[in-house]
Design a protein around this nucleic acid. Sequence first.
DNA 1: GTCGCTGCAAAGTCTTTGCAGAGAG
DNA 2: CTCTCTGCAAAGACTTTGCAGCGAC
Lengths: 182, 182
Amino acid sequence: MNQPEQHEPLISYETLLEQFKDLLKRSKPPLKFTKQREIILSTLYSHSGHYTPEELYQIIKEENPDLKTGIATVYRTLSLLENAGIVTSISFGTQGKKYELGVKAHHDHLICTKCGKILEFFDVAIERKQARIAKEFGFKMEDHSLKIFGICPECQKIEKEREKHKIESKKIESLQQKDKEH
Amino acid sequence: MNQPEQHEPLISYETLLEQFKDLLKRSKPPLKFTKQREIILSTLYSHSGHYTPEELYQIIKEENPDLKTGIATVYRTLSLLENAGIVTSISFGTQGKKYELGVKAHHDHLICTKCGKILEFFDVAIERKQARIAKEFGFKMEDHSLKIFGICPECQKIEKEREKHKIESKKIESLQQKDKEH
DNA sequence: GTCGCTGCAAAGTCTTTGCAGAGAG
DNA sequence: CTCTCTGCAAAGACTTTGCAGCGAC
């Protein structure tokens, strides 16, 4: 029921691209389809995951050194894509937002507070419950976000390792202490 | 099961204050109990709700014009209180965080995307489900946050009013148009 | 050609920090 | 008295905006 792995995008890149072009054409003042906008979309598509504007900007710069793309354009395009519902964002404390392609099925997030890793899951019962609660309060639900913060299995291991080392160095210290006493 | 209203704080101000003083004393380098820290705490206590540092700063300035309290101190104290678990924060997109006294029972949030109003609710079934999901992924759960975004009943009314006005002014326009044609 | 788009840099916004003097313990 | 706290202002981090030239349509 809960899928542990990153989902594959549900549609092909071609379809997504068509969708995007359509959207641009249909805007009130028609918008233009530019190299920068395509690259940002394709980068989001090929790199499944969650990125800050800065991270995305770095990937794009690295993979497309010819076309100079400014960080401002990344911000502007992400904002455009978010309003269009093509990407969704998830926000952290003061440290800004991470974006991901939103053509995947709705899902919620598990976030590791040590390494920042994000896992996705989906639970029908919780979804239903949320809709019911919104209704109960007379809210017209637009969106919802469920984030579970914790320490991922990998970081838990690292923590345990560290503690082991601490204990060992304490042992060594106390042994040395005893040596001194003699 | 879901409580629609703001909860009353669960403890008296005196108890809360004692808790806070204790905490300060017990810190590794003992911290000091200052007028500014007390005012920030008491303001949070007496104004039940969710505030940005800026909002809290404005309230404090207004209610305590004598004691000059800087915004930096508000940030520093909120951070201190959050680390101590006395207040909790809820974060929005890029627009920062809102803080509330955390001595109330755990609860989740319904947020109006028009007016920014925050309502609280609590649902045992969702709580349990979250714990189960974290466990399933091997996460050591530290915290979780469930936010439902939507339009509150009041703002829905306002929207409807506006639409009505729009339709009426369109009618007037088209009447004037017809007049011109004659 | 027309207008929207882009990169750049400058300006905003929100938050944190450095510092010298004030004040709690 | 000793150190932490505070206000102030300056610095930071992140995001948005103004503008002149570029490029899609």
